[in-house]
Design a protein around this nucleic acid. Structure first.
Length: 275
DNA sequence: TTGTGTTTTATTGCCTCC
DNA sequence: GGAGGCAATAAAACACAA
């Protein structure tokens, strides 16, 4: 972890904290801005601690104020984050110089930005899983209904057959096997998805081609090894949040593939498969 | 104006890697 | 052991309803 001093940069109203490296920090410098980017004074950047005690810079500001970055600084940081969400020392120094910030501030911004990205990603992953679940549930319900319908048809036909048999020669009854509805386990309880949606070559992975397609807007963050068999968006899909960040993978990476992937590879195996 | 919730900036402590 | 990453957290700044 970096330690050292952060000095106020009056030209940007940034870097106003003097970090002493011992857990104690002081804020120096400008007045509070009314809004982001609104600077009250333009002052030269200083790098010597004693300059911070210059009364011109020290007077009207309580020493524990924080400064927000200007929209321009944030914009540049965002652009940089898009291209690479990790910060090598050289890039950090360059960015800091360019933005009139301390390298420490740039590093902190990236750290916080990664944390925000991760939070968003988890939200997306949750939404994705939820829609997968809802879709599965709907599919299950329709199967149950179909099964019920078929069962009643069988019952009615059997009845007719029996009535006919009363007057005719008895025939060897043929038992019609239907999938008992009880054996279709509800996704709500006890879903063993691999059993029904295997990745086998039989193509049993097709769930519902008419169902809403699962195409994630971004990579999931789901750890593959921790959640085997879990649905997951196509790897490599980018979201607005993680553009260009090459290790900005979804929490669900590599676990399930979706329609987009299939379209690309022309493998009509349905809109998701288990892997 | 004020209370409250959210966002942003920064710190701390722990962990991993080299 | 130092550097850098992350989670948790603090606190200032901001937004907004009452």
């Amino acid at each position: 972890m970096e330690s050292g001093r952060l000095f106020f940069n009056p030209s940007t109203c940034q870097g106003n904290m003097l970090y002493l490296g011992n857990g104690e920090s002081f804020f120096r410098g400008a007045r509070t801005m009314n809004s982001m980017g609104e600077t009250s004074k333009k002052r030269p950047f200083f790098s010597l601690p004693e300059e911070l005690y210059d009364e011109e810079y020290y007077d009207e500001q309580s020493p524990e104020k924080k400064r927000r970055l200007t929209p321009e600084q944030v914009h540049m940081l965002e652009k940089s984050f898009e291209t690479e969400n990790k910060l090598e020392p050289e890039r950090k120094t360059q960015l800091a110089k360019k933005l009139g910030l301390q390298p420490r501030q740039v590093a902190v911004w990236f750290q916080n930005r990664r944390a925000r990205w991760k939070t968003k990603q988890l939200e997306r992953d949750y939404d994705l899983l939820k829609s997968s679940y809802d879709s599965l549930l709907a599919n299950y319900d329709s199967i149950v209904k179909d099964n019920e319908k078929l069962k009643s048809e069988v019952a009615s036909l059997t009845e007719k057959l029996q009535a006919k048999d009363v007057t005719a020669e008895p025939v060897v009854s043929q038992k019609v096997e239907l999938c008992p509805v009880e054996t279709v386990s509800s996704p709500q309880f006890n879903v063993k998805v691999e059993d029904r949606l295997s990745t086998g070559s039989a193509g049993s992975a097709v769930v519902d081609e008419d169902a809403p397609q699962l195409v994630d807007s971004g990579d999931s963050y789901f750890p593959n090894d921790e959640y085997p068999g879990c649905v997951c968006p196509i790897d490599g899909a980018q979201s607005e949040e993680d553009d260009g960040s090459d290790d900005g993978r979804s929490y669900f990476s590599n676990v399930f593939t979706a329609t987009e992937h299939e379209q690309q590879h022309e493998e009509p195996s349905g809109w998701w498969v288990w892997s």
